[in-house]
Structures are given as structure tokens and as C-alpha cells.
């Protein structure tokens, strides 16, 4: 569905540090094998909450693991951006809501801008406040995100040096 949650730069599910969410009876941890200490640290905080862990090299079998979990399970994901985005959308396809997901990105997050001149989304530096689109338009990076357009709004402007028409 077009209004299903997606993973984006300021997603509500993103966290700096995985930590147990209350009101869940079970935990499922999906973690890149290369960063398995993330899974271990979380497990140590879960105390007697039952948990299942899926350490992956690639995300191919993640759907099976998600489907196997029982109702009332909270999913904790630690991965790089591309893997996390893939796991996130699989989880949403399998009916999970954002409340049931927590995501820690290892490394850089990604951010996309949607150009209001040529109507295309492109990746930008996450710190940038102003960028130039491939179509030539200068864009101010706006604070609003569209799930349908898959980017933050890019407001067109004319840079001062090009003069005011």
C-alpha cells in the first residue's frame, strides 16, 4: 500500500542504540554477522524476555525468520543502510507496524531529495542544506518527507550569484 511505512532518514524506528521496548513479551534480533556484538549487547539487557536471534551474512532468508516469530514480538535490527532498508520493507510486507520495529544503522544513513522541478529523487549528502539536482535546478533541502515520492522536498531557488530575474 502506498501509505505503508518506509525506512527513511528520520524514521521513527531509527535509534542510536538498541534497547528493549516495553510491552513486548518476545524479542527477535536480526543482526549483520559482522556486528554481532550489537546482538550480544541487546541480549544482555533483555534479562528473562525470551528472544530469538538471526545473524546474517546476506538478507536472503530473513523473511522466513520474520514469519516464524509469534505475535507480541518486537524486532530489533542492526545492519548497514541498504540491508536495514530491505529487512524493514520485508517486515512491513509481512504485516509488522513501526511500533514493532527498532533499527540501528551501522555506518552512514542515506538521505534522498525530491526535485520539484524535474520530479525525480536523488541521493544527497546527509549534512547538505542546499544541493544542485542533475536537471540543473538549485534546491533547498526541505524538512518534509514523502513516502510516495521517496525523498525530502527540494524547494527550487535561484542562487544569488546568478542574479534575480
Amino acid at each position: 500500500m502506498y501509505n505503508s511505512p518506509v525506512l527513511f532518514f528520520e524514521s521513527a524506528t531509527l535509534t542510536e542504540k538498541l534497547s528493549p521496548k516495553t510491552h513486548f513479551v518476545k524479542a527477535a534480533i536480526i543482526c549483520d554477522e559482522a556486528y554481532k556484538e550489537e546482538a550480544q549487547q541487546l541480549q544482555a539487557q533483555l534479562f528473562d524476555t525470551p528472544s530469538a536471534t538471526f545473524l546474517f551474512k546476506d538478507t536472503a532468508n530473513v523473511r522466513d525468520f520474520i514469519v516464524e516469530q509469534k505475535m507480541g514480538t518486537c524486532f530489533y535490527i542492526a545492519a548497514n543502510w541498504d540491508d536495514a532498508a530491505a529487512i524493514f520493507s520485508t517486515a512491513v510486507e509481512e504485516g509488522l507496524s513501526e511500533e514493532e520495529l527498532q533499527v540501528k544503522i551501522i555506518g552512514e544513513k542515506r538521505k534522498y531529495i525530491y526535485c520539484m522541478k524535474c520530479f525525480t529523487a536523488s541521493e544527497i549528502d546527509t549534512q547538505a542544506t542546499h544541493v544542485q539536482c542533475g536537471c540543473g535546478a538549485h534546491l533547498e533541502v526541505g524538512p518534509f518527507y514523502s513516502k510516495v515520492r521517496k525523498g525530502y522536498i527540494g524547494y527550487p531557488f535561484v542562487p544569488k550569484t546568478e542574479g534575480v530575474k
Partner: peptide
């Protein structure tokens, strides 16, 4: 509209 902000933005002054 947002699509033409580069045009009407400066004209306001």
C-alpha cells in the same frame, strides 16, 4: 506553488 518557487520567490521584493 512549490514547483515555481524560484520564480515568484524573488519577485516578491
Amino acid at each position: 506553488n512549490y514547483e515555481t518557487m524560484d520564480v515568484w520567490g524573488p519577485e516578491r521584493s
